[in-house]
Design a protein around this nucleic acid. Structure first.
Length: 228
DNA sequence: GCGACAG
DNA sequence: ATCTTGTCGC
């Protein structure tokens, strides 16, 4: 990966990775995957951007559902300690994301995260990680696969195919727009694959990324300029 | 041992 | 993620 091909990024400490892996295996036991019982009125989207290599800026956008009108947007920036390591993204981004979340005046019924949910080696993608910390329904929408195998879904919007890992369907590869690369939708915590897929599709209006994460991504770039 | 590898 | 120009298409 990039970290051992790069000259300036320190290689991950084996002892640290062992500890973080232990933590994920521990958290894994608390994951609850079920159809949410809420009636979705407010949905949040979150994403982070980086300023240099040691500062992170996280954004949370709150939208009314299913209208998808923005009702609130907050951000928080701070230092980042760990380098990016595949499989350990949450330990790098979650701390700052949680601080941004606290700034929301109203809390969402569901959080859509830019990244994977249970479609992770130990089922602990950043969406699941955040869900456990917030004790709130979360789902992940990633742009690239992390683990698992799948066949390319049809090119029409709405087409999907399962992402399978260790004989289990951990996400749906969903085409959210005609002839555009699909996204990977997975449940995070207190959520199930079917509901997550349906919500992702409902939020995908005219772009590849569903509105919550698309707008979070957009504002992350906007706020980043204000900070600079 | 050889690849793969979210953001 | 980030570094970066023009360019093709709706």
């Amino acid at each position: 990966m990039a970290y051992f091909r790069s000259f300036n990024t320190p290689p991950p400490d084996p002892a640290v990775l062992k500890e973080l892996t232990r933590k994920q295996n521990e958290m894994q036991q608390r994951i609850i995957l079920q159809r949410p019982d809420f009636d979705l009125k407010l949905i949040a989207g979150c994403d982070s951007s980086f300023i240099g290599e040691d500062k992170i800026l996280s954004v949370f956008v709150l939208l009314r559902y299913p209208e998808l009108e923005v009702v609130e947007k907050v951000w928080h920036h701070g230092p980042v300690e760990l380098p990016y390591i595949p499989g350990f993204l949450a330990f790098r981004e979650a701390p700052n994301l949680l601080k941004a979340y606290e700034k929301l005046q109203q809390k969402p019924d569901l959080v859509m995260v830019d990244g994977h949910g249970i479609s992770h080696p130990r089922r602990l993608g950043i969406a699941t990680h955040l869900g456990l910390h917030l004790n709130k329904p979360t789902m992940g929408v990633a742009k690239k696969v992390l683990v698992g195998k799948y066949t390319e879904p049809a090119t029409a919007k709405g087409a999907l195919s399962p992402l399978v890992y260790k004989d289990e369907v951990i996400a749906n590869v969903l085409r959210t727009k005609d002839n555009v690369k699909p996204v990977f939708v997975s449940p995070g915590h207190l959520m199930d694959l079917e509901s997550a897929t349906e919500i992702a599709m409902t939020c995908a209006i005219k772009h590849k990324l569903p509105e919550p994460t698309r707008l979070a991504d957009h504002y992350a770039a906007v706020f980043k300029q204000e900070v600079k």
